[in-house]
Write a protein that binds this DNA or RNA. Structure first.
Length: 883
RNA sequence: GGGCGGAUAGCUCAGCUGGAAGAGCAUCGGCCUUACAAGCCGGAGGUCACAGGUUCGAGCCCUGUUCCGCCUACCA
């Protein structure tokens, strides 16, 4: 495979497939807890088994992979745990849909058969997203892949549940919760999405039972009035003082309900009188508890009215019932007015059905004590959230946390380990399935399962083998960093913090890196229903994984969303190809055996310069990645490769490589090989495939697996800042000749002379030493430099720093064009010079600004003044020739 | 209602502790120069949302305003 030539264009598809197989076979991501090195560990945010890879995953995986590959290069012992979660509601929905298509249902099948069926489904389709993760090039440890429903993790879930119960942090009770009438299960507060809806505010007359008057209440849900058990007013509301303690007759029913006083009531809203329906409204439920009101459920679990709603309404859906109630109220004269009213309505985040507050027996985690610990871990810096701005959000949520409803009335998930005795009613929560109640009675197991997030909350330690004490736990907990989007900061991150601290006594991760959300080109959230999704796998097929990864990296600036479009990915494919071609060129010029030429002595400027820049790149790239500034790493590498390595260094090295001097050639080959090799290493974490492919063809490396090559060591002997200044001078001269050529419309092929007049001995030395390079880069037929070069009459001119550049012209010189050119340059330069001059003339500046800043300004001033002087001189020359 | 973020070139965005306004794409002109036309060379393009303030110096810090996002909340 060690061809020293590369194909003309980079073909990602074939290359990626080949290296994916290679890395799979060699177990590239497999971690060894016993290996030496400082551990670095990440647990993947487990994607939903029913899911398919989307751009959010692609970014998330790219970031994690960059970190893991980089840390391996730094000699760290890296573990990246992959896996999926069982997504209770979503998965159950998917399988139920399949059953419906077959004309069956879970109820028909029974619980056991249904769960079996879900396992089958997961066996067939659950691997899809894992394969997609593979295609991203994610260097995870496949030997440690986990699933929230697998045996080990289920054991952890059970242990946690039992312990929390024993500690009094889990309790069961009749409470009002969010209920999805379609999914037929409870939802946690977080699983309810609120969206504004146009609705109406109805005012209804409630006559006093003693006939002495009436109260008008306002509501957006008139149908719930059938379950009202009180009317509440503010205790200090003067207009209602006389009503408190009296009773009203509830219209459409034969019930009489009390008027109570509670400060919760907002006197300004509506009429200031609130109907209270404890069974069907969260706030009314609390109110009802405070006042011991009756909880009257008028709806069943499917959102239909039940017997308690009265014979006229029983069996109606909540929507139909609303219409009927309004009509009846109107007919009976109880409806005072109806006005338009916008309010927010909660919907199930899985199926978008309007949720119904519902009173039922549920299990809760007492969140307060856990939240306090989770908060202080961030306050004290044990866990750092990056970017920092998210800590406020994190605190805010923990400070206002409510108890977490963890039971779900579905079948797919971890079944709650609780049993009730049919004889004595005793509740048993146990690690082992009990056979019978101590009283001898038969036991009935709680039918509910746990919220999926309950098991996800244990992920950082359950995946490492907890509750057993394993090598993995010892080596890799706490994990180094959690990489995720802010959308699950509460769902997941905060809960992992609570559980990790409670059960491990240590934070689950030292850093939390919150990355951007990927949006479409217009900034809209990508969603299937909007039809604006960009499928990462389609992009990979089209442009290659590296192009996609590089694009996401380049745009992954902290604290901002990414607007992604196909064009951008296509653009970065050009970059991948540029790298490929630079390597292709290099290899055409490299021998099988890399010359032993030393790079440590005095080197020609272009070598010294690129080696110096390479040293800077090594430093800045590592710093950027380790500081989570991924876009900086990408952008730095982009411009280094394209603008410095390709546009200048390779072009200059051509002269050496094509020349006759074997020693010069050997040095160039060694330098080229060195820079390319190390550059590939630096780019590898971002673009694993193309770099690996090139590396495998590059001669002189025994380790053919780039993913195992360490980060290049610093070479202090190559740090030569003065090389940059000298190179800048060369570049300025070359660019000024090119500029003359372009602006005076001289064909690129025409050979030109160039002479530079310089009074600076150092500059002169640089120019003389690099004559050959200037000739090559500016396409000259000859170059001379000296302190007293005289300008030929017919010549174009420019200023490079304080030096005058002349390009003799064969034909007639267009003096006006030449003057225009010089004037343009002069205007720009003198404007800059003026600004700096004003600054230095300001005594406050020279007195108060730091000495180094002032020194820098003086230097700049000198340079600019020299340039202005030169330009004026050149202009005067043209004017005299013209005149 | 509370909180957070954004406003910089035509577009998308960098600009990390205040010290000469940057990149990519698009655009204009010229090039098939033997790694790359998925390319090369050169150019043009900005009152850093607005108004004040602090400072020798502000895109960056402070105050206020406008316009966009997002999160969060029990106003029925």
């Amino acid at each position: 495979m060690s061809e020293t030539t590369l194909a003309k264009g980079y073909e990602p598809e074939e290359v990626e497939a080949r290296w994916l197989t290679f890395w799979a076979e060699t177990g590239a991501g497999t971690a060894d807890p016993d290996a030496p090195g400082v551990p670095f560990s990440i647990v993947i945010p487990p994607p939903n088994v029913t899911g398919a890879l989307h751009m959010g995953h692609a970014l998330n995986l790219t970031v994690q992979d960059i970190l893991c590959r980089h840390m391996r290069q730094m000699g760290r012992k890296v573990l990246w745990v992959p896996g999926t979660d069982h997504a209770g509601i979503a998965t159950q929905n998917v399988v139920e849909r399949a059953l419906a298509a077959e004309g069956s249902s879970r109820h028909e099948m029974g619980r056991e058969k249904f769960v079996e069926r879900v396992w089958e489904w997961r066996k067939d389709y659950g691997g899809r997203i894992l394969n997609q993760i593979r295609r991203m090039g994610a260097s995870v440890d496949w030997t440690r892949e986990r699933f929230t429903m697998d045996e080990g993790l289920s054991k952890a879930v059970r242990e946690v549940f039992v312990r929390l119960y024993e500690e009094g942090l889990i309790y069961k009770g009749d409470y009002i919760i969010n209920w999805c009438p379609r999914c037929q299960t409870a939802l946690a507060d977080l699983e309810v999405e609120h969206s504004p809806k146009k609705g109406a505010l109805y005012q209804i007359r409630y006559p006093l039972a003693d006939g002495s008057g009436e109260l008008v209440v306002a509501t957006t849900r008139p149908e719930t009035m059938l379950g009202d058990s009180a009317v509440a007013v503010h205790p200090e509301d003067e207009k209602y003082q006389d009503y408190i303690g009296k009773f009203v007759k509830l219209p459409l029913t034969d019930r009489t309900i009390p008027v109570i006083a509670d400060a919760y009531v907002d006197r300004e809203f509506g009429t200031g009188a609130l109907k209270v329906t404890p069974a069907h409204d969260m706030n009314d439920f609390d109110l009802g508890r405070r006042h011991n009101l009756e909880v009257i459920k008028v709806m069943d679990g499917e959102g239909n009215m039940n017997e308690a709603a009265g014979p006229a309404y029983q069996g109606l859906s909540r929507e139909v019932c609303r219409k009927r109630v309004v009509e009846d109220l109107k007919t009976a004269g109880f409806l005072v007015q109806v006005e338009e009213h916008d309010h927010s309505v909660g919907e199930c985040y899985r199926c978008k059905t309007v949720v119904e507050p519902h009173v039922s027996p549920q299990w809760f985690v007492k969140a307060g004590p856990l939240a306090a610990v989770a908060r202080s871990a961030v306050e004290t810096g044990k866990t750092q959230i990056i970017p920092e701005q998210w800590t406020t959000t994190y605190y805010h949520w923990l400070d206002n946390i409510r108890d977490w409803c963890i039971s779900r009335q579905i079948w797919w998930g971890h079944r709650i380990p609780a049993w009730t005795c049919e004889t004595c009613g005793k509740l048993i929560v146990s690690r082992q399935d009990p056979d019978a109640c101590p009283c001898g009675g038969a036991l009935q197991r709680d039918p509910d399962v746990l919220d999926t997030w309950f098991s996800s909350a244990l992920w950082p330690f359950s995946t490492l083998g907890w509750p057993d004490s394993t090598k993995e736990l010892k080596a890799f907990y706490p994990t180094s960093v959690l990489v995720t989007g802010f959308d699950i900061l509460f769902f997941w991150v905060a809960r992992m913090m609570m559980m990790g601290l409670h059960f491990m006594d240590e934070v689950p991760f030292k850093h939390v890196y919150i990355h951007a959300l990927v949006r479409d080109a217009e900034g809209k959230k990508m969603s299937k229903s909007t039809g604006n999704v960009i499928d990462p796998l389609v992009m990979i097929d089209k442009f290659g994984t590296d192009a996609l990864r590089f694009t996401l990296t380049a745009f992954a600036a902290m604290g901002r969303d990414i607007k992604l479009s196909e064009d951008r990915i296509e653009g970065y494919r050009h970059f991948v190809n540029k790298l490929w071609n630079a390597a292709r060129f290099s290899m055409m010029n490299l021998p099988e055996t890399i010359p032993a030429a030393s790079l440590d002595g005095e080197l020609p400027l272009h070598h010294a310069w690129i080696l110096h820049r390479l040293e800077e790149m090594k430093q800045s790239t590592a710093k950027a990645i380790e500081g989570y500034h991924f876009n900086e790493a990408a952008q730095g590498l982009y411009s280094f490769l394209w603008l410095e390595f390709c546009d200048w260094y390779l072009e200059m090295a051509k002269a050496d490589l094509n020349g006759e001097d074997e020693a010069v050639k050997a040095t160039a080959q060694k330098c080229l090989w060195t820079v390319l090799s190390e550059l590939l290493t630096l780019m590898h974490p971002i673009m694993p495939f193309v770099t690996q492919e090139i590396w495998s063809h590059l001669p002189g490396h025994e380790q053919k697996d780039l993913s195992k090559v360490l980060y290049p060591e610093a070479r202090p002997q190559h740090v030569k800042p003065e090389a940059v200044a000298q190179m800048t001078l060369l570049q300025e001269i070359v660019v000024s000749v090119r500029n003359i050529r372009s602006e005076l419309s001289i064909s690129p092929g025409a050979k030109l002379e160039c002479m530079v007049r310089t009074g600076d001995a150092a500059d002169l030395a640089t120019l003389r030493a690099n004559e050959r390079m200037i000739v090559q880069m500016a396409r000259l037929s000859g170059f001379t430099a000296g302190p007293d070069v005289t300008a030929p009459k017919a010549s174009a001119s420019a200023a490079a720093g304080g030096n005058a550049v002349f390009v003799p012209l064969a034909g007639a010189v267009d003096f006006d064009a030449e003057l225009a050119r010089l004037n343009k340059e002069l205007a720009k330069t003198s404007k800059e010079a003026e600004i700096v001059g004003r600054k230095l003339a300001n005594e406050d500046f020279t007195a108060k600004a730091p000495a180094e800043v002032v020194a820098k300004e003086r230097e700049k001033d000198e340079m600019l003044r020299g340039k202005v002087e030169k330009l004026e001189e050149l202009k005067a020359r043209i004017e005299s020739l013209k005149g």
